[in-house]
Design a protein around this nucleic acid. Structure first.
Lengths: 205, 205
DNA sequence: ATAATTACTGACCCGTTAGTCAGTAATTGG
DNA sequence: CCAATTACTGACTAACGGGTCAGTAATTAT
């Protein structure tokens, strides 16, 4: 009896396809990625891909959903379940998150989001609700907790959560464009963290 | 004698076309912009466009060149020709530049640059040399001047130029994606400026 | 075994669009 | 006024790629 030409693996296909799509999108960008190519990488025919994803745009959304959101979940879970002081969290898990993000494949998705976002308003809304808003909210809560416990003084600056997010976005974009000339991401993010924490604690800057 | 169907205006065509292209790219992004559409907006036939620009990519590069670079030139000229103190410059012209950029059409080009950059390495190099590198260099010089004149203390933070550039890029991206939910650009940039200047002056943060 | 089901294939279709080019009409020079 | 020049037009094409679907082969039910 001959080897079967293919196996039916309904369960695994979607994930295999989104993984292939992630790689392809990362390499070529959205518009330049051929659906045919994604299918090949996933070891599947184009027809099958269209069985699981209605359109190319649909596929793109699925990629964002399945790779970016979990990352944010991980962060917020740590905040909620740990007893760390705000500073410990910022210098620990947050810093770790921020410094590893720009080198990860997620950073490519963020770039894609910037590039393609305006063409997909509903995706943008999804991204806002599930990633950006929650991320900023988490920082906000954390700072508030720091203030409550007398660790930080109450700052006049309302934009603090954004100021913490800034170096992350900056590094992601900067590195993805000017890999070679990019300053050390760790130092950049570290410097901003130092500035902000010093400010929150009321130290001499 | 009838009105001529068209005038020959060799001199003005390139600029008119790049202007039309800027608008089109801004509205639709690079891939979704039709060369035909750019031509129509410029009031020319597609054939003529191809007489002035070899390819669509060529056109894109011309747009970046002609609209972004002058903006940086303006800034560096002010630095070189004015007698302002560093702080005056940062709180004056630099702040003005930074806060108006995210609302201008240039910001759309920056987003396009982020989106399309990786596909055009030579353009990226050009952009680095003529925009990013010069911009960072200008800030660097300015800070150095501030230190020389005893206005600022010498900071241990080497990444300062990037820290000044950060809120600008952040605002550009943030606003172009989440226009509605974007925090007040002025305040965001202002806050970062305050932090950095306080740090440079050695004040209490 | 064989029928019914369905995951899967791959050739095809068709709208779309970057880029071309033979021809046309506005200029310019004699 | 006519000829030479060239800025300009617009119909054309060649290719590409998203999406479809009739058919096939693996699986499951009987």
């Amino acid at each position: 009896m001959p080897e079967p030409r293919f196996r039916r693996r309904k369960e695994d296909r979607p994930q295999e396809i989104t993984e292939a799509a992630l790689t392809a999108f990362a390499e070529k960008g959205y518009a330049a990625t051929r659906v045919d190519d994604v299918a090949k990488r996933a070891g599947v025919s184009k027809g099958l891909l269209y069985l699981y994803f209605k359109t190319k745009e649909d596929l793109f959304k699925a990629v964002i959903r399945s790779f970016v959101v979990p990352r944010i979940d991980a962060l917020t879970t740590i905040i909620d379940n740990s007893e760390m002081s705000a500073e410990e969290f910022l210098r620990g898990p947050f810093f770790e998150f921020a410094r590893t993000l720009p080198g990860s494949h997620i950073s490519i998705l963020i770039r894609l989001m910037i590039a393609e976002g305006p063409k997909h308003p509903d995706l943008l809304q999804f991204y806002w609700d599930n990633v950006v808003s929650r991320g900023l909210g988490a920082i906000s809560e954390l700072l508030e907790r720091g203030v409550q416990q007398g660790e930080f003084r109450r700052s006049a600056v309302n934009e603090l959560p954004h100021l913490f997010a800034m170096p992350v976005l900056f590094s992601v974009v900067f590195r993805s464009l000017f890999e070679k000339q990019c300053p050390d991401t760790d130092k950049l993010i570290g410097a901003q963290l130092d500035l902000l924490i010093a400010h929150m604690k009321g130290d001499v800057a």
